[in-house]
Amino acid sequence: MEFKNISEQDSKHDHLEKMSTTKLLKAINQEDQTVATAVENILPAIEKMVDAIVLKMQSGGRLFYIGAGTSGRLGVLDASECPPTFGVAADKVIGIIAGGDHAIRHAVENAEDDGEQAFKDLQKFNISDKDVVIGIAASGRTPYVIGGLDACNTAGITTGGITCNPGSPLDVTAVHSMVAVVGPEFVTGSSRMKAGTAQKMILNMISTSVMIKLGHIKGNKMVDMQLSNDKLVDRGTRMIMESAQLDYDRAQELLKKYGSVRNVLNHIGIC
């Protein structure tokens, strides 16, 4: 497939600096509305990726995200939200960004241009063929990501890719390629906008679907969530109230005693 660098094409909008605030917001919103359709168009590819991850994680494998810049930050964000949301260990879903943790808040010069560093970063976690690695790059041509996936393919590690450019090196390299074609950005080349939104949506779909299929949701409730603040304790209490037909005080008493909604529901024979 011919590489089409769509994410770098000229915006459909011009003279942005002359637009009123209302026109700017409406135009950005109109562009954003196209993202969900672009993601919908690749649901079969996302489905194959999810099923592949579930099989690996059921056998003790882990899920890794690798990326640079905005894409790397989105991977780190999704990974970091899995333990509190689903109660999984912090080493089950791992986000790695080019340039290390410092790059989460600050740009690290040339970090994304090193095609060998990603696999070195992965090796620090004793990466193996039990695991899955998803590379994230809006352009689909980031050397850090391409090099990492290429090395993973050679090592027999399942690979996936999230990009917005069909025919890109990432599209070609990833075994499970997910290409959301969102078109040119509102601000030419600013892939933190529509491309970033598409990547976030896909990551949400992947991690949420995987965790549901691994049993971390009951009904539609986060029964394994970590009780890390008063809001979540209250949410857990209300889940127990609803499921076990208990009053608030008794539900909270049990939650604090057993430490999680799942443990309480197991104790009273519901979960």
Rank of each mutant, 00 (worst) to 15 (best):
A111V: 06
H176E: 15
V133T: 06
T85V: 00
I217G: 09
S71A: 10
K23D: 15
I136G: 06
I96Q: 02
I202L: 11
Y144H: 10
D171M: 11
T173C: 15
P83E: 04
V175S: 14
V132E: 02
A103C: 08
Q117A: 06
R250A: 13
K257W: 01
E17Q: 06
P166S: 15
T70R: 01
G115E: 12
K213N: 10
V223K: 04
S177D: 15
A251P: 12
L254A: 07
F186H: 07
Q199N: 10
S209G: 03
I53D: 07
G72Q: 01
V145W: 12
N266K: 13
R262Q: 12
S128D: 05
I270L: 09
L25A: 13
Y258H: 12
D91L: 01
K18E: 15
G115W: 02
N153K: 09
M19G: 06
M57L: 14
K200W: 06
Q123D: 10
I217R: 09
P84D: 06
N29L: 03
I134S: 11
A195S: 14
M19P: 13
L74S: 02
E40H: 06
G75N: 09
E2K: 15
I202Q: 05
H176R: 13
N263M: 12
K200I: 04
A151K: 13
V264F: 14
V50P: 05
P83A: 02
G160Q: 10
E116W: 01
T22A: 15
D10S: 15
I46L: 08
S139M: 13
D32E: 12
A138V: 07
M19A: 11
I66N: 00
G215M: 11
K4C: 10
S80G: 03
A151D: 12
I217F: 06
I96N: 03
F119N: 01
H106Q: 14
L55Y: 06
E31N: 09
T159R: 03
V210Q: 05
L170I: 04
G189K: 03
D249R: 07
K92G: 10
R73H: 07
V93C: 12
G95N: 01
F125Y: 15
T158I: 14
N220H: 14
Q30E: 11
V210L: 09
T158R: 06
